[in-house]
């Protein structure tokens, strides 16, 4: 009830500066994301992905989730995109358009993307509705609060994810190792 009252006080979508910024950055991020999947220049797609991921980080910041924002930059922009670019350079990505940078499955992909987006939007809207962040006390999403949440309420998923990543790591090592049979053949 208090949330509803708060919402009534503030007014739904009252255009404060932060909200306008949030919307504008959101539009820019969306635009960058669309360009990422539609451009035919491979490296440009990777760089637009940087813009999209950076935009997301800014959105996190505006939502006071500072920790998540910096981790987003660190992991995605700093490492994942670098890995992507590394891969693209290894595959001799041409400067200019790649004529084959298109997929026959674009309609299927679009359907999946729209469905995923709809599901996410629905879940988020349904979960939070008009909830307002309480800015008194330590900010929600600050490092301490995030850590406490993560290691008190969400320990099990966290550990499960760790095991998953470990399994992936071991799998990668197994796959990339030369087996003894190969050696014998040589």
């Amino acid at each position: 009830m208090s949330h509803l009252a708060a919402a009534a006080e503030q007014g739904f979508l009252s255009p404060t500066g932060v909200e306008i910024a949030f919307l504008l950055v959101g539009i820019a991020t969306l635009g960058a994301a669309v360009v990422t999947v539609t451009t035919k220049q491979l490296v440009h797609a990777a760089l637009w992905l940087v813009v999209a991921l950076g935009g997301l980080a800014v959105e996190y910041l505006l939502l006071t989730a500072e920790f998540i924002a910096w981790v987003q930059v660190l992991i995605y922009v700093g490492s994942v995109v670098v890995l992507l670019l590394f891969g693209l350079m290894l595959t001799k990505a041409p400067i200019g358009r790649s004529p084959d940078a298109d997929s026959g499955n674009r309609w299927a992909a679009l359907t999946v993307a729209v469905a995923a987006a709809a599901a996410l939007v629905w879940v988020v809207v349904d979960a939070f509705r008009t909830q307002w962040i309480d800015l008194d006390g330590p900010a929600q999403g600050s490092t301490r609060v995030t850590g406490e949440f993560l290691f008190q309420h969400w320990v099990l998923p966290f550990e499960a994810l760790s095991v998953l990543l470990l399994a992936a790591l071991v799998g990668a090592i197994v796959l990339s190792r030369k087996s003894d049979n190969d050696k014998e053949q040589r």
Binding site: W70, V71, V73, L74, G78, L85, A93
Partner: peptide, 28 residues
Amino acid sequence: VIDAGIFFVLAVMGVGVLGSLMAGWASA
């Protein structure tokens, strides 16, 4: 003062390397 200072610093330093990558690829 940034709350997650270490993460901020390391994250942003990592972005700097993108410049070299862009330069390396775009020079043809």
